[in-house]
Simulated assay, not measured.
Amino acid sequence: MHKDVSQLPQKANPALVKQANLFADLPTKLIEDFQQEFQLNQWNKGDYINSDILTQRFFVVIEGNIEIKQSNPDTGREATLDMLYAGDCFDLMVLLDNQPHEVIISPLTTVKLLSVKLSTMRYWLWTYPEFNQQFMPYIAKKMREKEQQASSLILHDVTTRLSRIILEHINKIKFYTGTKEEEHQHHLVNGLNDETLARMTGSVRQVINKQLQHWKKEDVIDKKRNQLIIKDLEALEKEAKYTQNLANAPLSKS
């Protein structure tokens, strides 16, 4: 059973606002003005968040991971539309077209967010050119991600799609555990179980599990519950078949 959503009725401070890439480079005075309109929220894993809230408030993730999904009520099958990380904003679609967006908002961890009234966010975009200049590249980045996601579903097999998703996840969380000497090849991926990876890949859990077990046998990864330890980053990048013109291409080597 879903738990009720929990919120912290607190005001944000300028330091929190600067954590979001969208606001980080704005003039200090503008950030101080903006922060007065933000509310600090917290969602926990398992919380139910009604998507109607997206027509009222605009959210910026400060900490944690959120999966945005849609489901087929006839089959029960779910697909991941987006994975949100610290610094990401949502919902861009509602912000731009002012239409409801029926999605499933699923916190994968405890998530801390800044939220602001949707009308206020639109006012900022219309009123402050310096903010608009920060916002447009972010929209373009998200559009490119969606383009890559759509083309990958059509043009590449499950192994390639799965390896790309894992690499993109590593790129976004920038989390490493291990010795300095092995930093270039040991990376930890938390919170993505087989079912989640299947939704993100456009596949099914059994196929994803089979591929992960194959990589484990080949010593490319180590798999423990909802945790993947990447042991051979180069092998994973080879499976991803990246080209240099892809935005989320391989991680830089040490």
Results as ranks from 00 to 15, higher is better:
Ile229Pro: 00
Ser151Pro: 00
Asn209Gln: 11
His214Arg: 14
Leu8Ser: 14
Lys11Val: 11
Ala247Glu: 11
Gly64Pro: 03
Ile170Cys: 10
Arg161Met: 07
Thr201Arg: 01
Pro14Tyr: 04
Ile53Glu: 11
Leu228Lys: 09
Ile62Trp: 02
Asp33Ile: 04
Glu234Val: 14
Thr160Trp: 02
Gln10Glu: 12
Lys146Gly: 02
Asp88Gln: 04
Val111Trp: 01
Ile173Asn: 07
Arg199Asn: 05
Ile166Cys: 06
Glu234Arg: 13
Asp52Gly: 01
Lys172Ile: 00
Glu32Lys: 15
Arg199Pro: 00
Ile104Trp: 05
Glu147Pro: 00
Asn209Arg: 10
Asn171Pro: 05
Gln35Arg: 04
Asp4Gln: 11
Leu96His: 11
Tyr176Trp: 11
Asn209Phe: 01
Lys217Thr: 15
Thr109Leu: 05
Leu197Asp: 02
Glu218Phe: 02
Thr28Met: 05
Met121Gln: 14
Lys216Ala: 07
Pro9Gln: 09
Asp91Ser: 13
Leu113Glu: 05
Thr201Phe: 02
Gln206Tyr: 08
Lys224Gln: 12
Glu147Asn: 09
Gln56Met: 09
Glu147Cys: 06
Leu30Ser: 07
Ser254Trp: 10
Ala249Val: 11
Thr110Met: 11
Thr196Glu: 03
Lys3Cys: 08
Asn193Phe: 02
Lys11Ala: 14
Ser119Arg: 14
